[in-house]
Write a protein that binds this DNA or RNA. Sequence first.
DNA 1: AATCACACGTGAAGC
DNA 2: TGCTTCACGTGTGAT
Lengths: 185, 185
Amino acid sequence: MDVELLNDDRPAVSTVVTDERRPRKRGRKPANGREEPLNHVEAERQRREKLNQRFYALRAVVPNISKMDKASLLGDAISYITELQKKLKEMESEKDVQQNSPDVDVQMGNNEVIVHVSTPLETHPVSTVINVFKETQVDVVDSKFSASNNTVFHTFVVKTQSGSEQMTMGFFFSPLLTMACERKF
Amino acid sequence: MDVELLNDDRPAVSTVVTDERRPRKRGRKPANGREEPLNHVEAERQRREKLNQRFYALRAVVPNISKMDKASLLGDAISYITELQKKLKEMESEKDVQQNSPDVDVQMGNNEVIVHVSTPLETHPVSTVINVFKETQVDVVDSKFSASNNTVFHTFVVKTQSGSEQMTMGFFFSPLLTMACERKF
DNA sequence: AATCACACGTGAAGC
DNA sequence: TGCTTCACGTGTGAT
């Protein structure tokens, strides 16, 4: 009975409020009018499942998920990524500072070669010790350096100012042990 | 989350095909008398838009997007996050190694105090130089150390083995300048 | 033609 | 009660 082509009244549904242009085509029903391919619906089902699976996996790697909402999850993931990127960039720049540091100069003589290495104090392992020397205003008489297999030794000889008061020096240097282990640089 | 055990649900599925009539509730909708609340459809529209917006933003922060596909995007984002986490964890552990390093020992005498500082060679600024010394098997006769305002100076006196051949030594030490600047440690 | 990926409107479930 | 979020089937443009 209904052989007419009035199936174009469907857009009338959505064009209630200034919907939009719709460059549709005519009579596009799959011949049967009934019964979609059933493949399509299944394929779409799988696509949805895969997507949700990824959402679930994303929740696993992003900490501090504020809400279970999908959009919020994506937002959290985005801010988390940018946060990681920022943190990593900072660390790499710090590394670069440490790597650009050593400045090497070689002087060759007849029987010997003299190698000068200068680096910024900040990133040097003994910086904390040196800084304590400066802060306490003690005189460094001598400083030695030696390297064994895989360890570097620095030895500093410090002169007690005006006749040595061991208690005072102990007061100065006891913080050294703890400072050297705690201080961040 | 919800598992459909009633898979026979295909009754009033598409209102598209058989839309001309209203098989369900009558005159239920407010004011418009026509279609669905129109709020709902608009709300859903906004939700979709927001979600896609987040997807677009996610594409901006994730590099190396293999395909424009949504699922692939999520997959790339996930692997990218885990990659960043891994990289960051490595760097932090390296930092910890550098911070735990300095080992300080203080010996107090009458007129002087001797401070020993030992650190692992790997992270020491002169490690590259020391390693070159080892690799070329030269003898380090003397090594001095001094620190000025904000710079540390290391001076190594190296003895030429068996009568000094400057060309050979130059061959040994010219790589030193470049190596010290390039090598990663 | 067949497949893929997307956006849409719609019913339902949780507050 | 309405508001929000979700899954679903479907239409459609690409490839």
